[in-house]
């Protein structure tokens, strides 16, 4: 990609944070209404991809909290943990615990899904946009 739009490159930084805030809102909204970790994660990926396209993949990678693969792993780990926590009392895997003010292992699970989607799909987008191909994943 040789020609980049300066306007888009400049706008991508605030847009990134706005999209990320929207992603978080969708993630938390999914608790009782349409939304959730997967959709929220996709919006977060859109934010990362926007930066990757408007500037370069390096800039997008720097804005991620972790490198793509560890981020995805952390997500799957959190989701597994959410499933295991419910099992502590002897109930089967993925039995969810609920507490007051909306906190539950379900939210933890959803956050895990969010991070897994964000990490893995950002990784793919970076691999597709970078010149090195899969070796640079």
């Amino acid at each position: 990609m040789t020609s980049r739009s300066t306007l888009l490159a400049v706008a991508s930084r605030p847009l990134y944070w706005v999209l990320l805030a929207a992603a978080l809102w969708i993630l938390l909204r999914g608790h009782n209404e349409p939304g959730g970790g997967f959709v929220g994660g996709l919006v977060a990926v859109a934010a990362s991809s926007l930066v990757a396209i408007a500037r370069d993949t390096e800039a997008a990678r720097r804005l991620l909290p972790l490198a793509p693969l560890p981020l995805a792993m952390l997500g799957v780990g959190l989701a597994t943990l959410a499933g295991l926590l419910g099992g502590i009392g002897g109930a089967p895997f993925l039995t969810h615990l609920w507490s007051s003010w909306g906190l539950s292992t379900v939210v933890l699970f959803d956050v895990g899904v969010f991070l897994a989607v964000w990490g893995s799909l950002s990784g793919y987008v970076h691999a597709l946009l970078a010149d090195g191909g899969p070796a640079s994943r």
């Binding site: 560890p70 089967p92 895997f93």
Partner: peptide
């Protein structure tokens, strides 16, 4: 929990092994 253990143990192991790339 025992019938799920053969599935969960390698899953957690995979995550642990992936978390230690270096």
């Amino acid at each position: 929990m025992l019938p799920l253990a053969p599935m969960l143990v390698p899953l957690v192991t995979a995550l642990l092994a992936a978390a230690l790339p270096r």
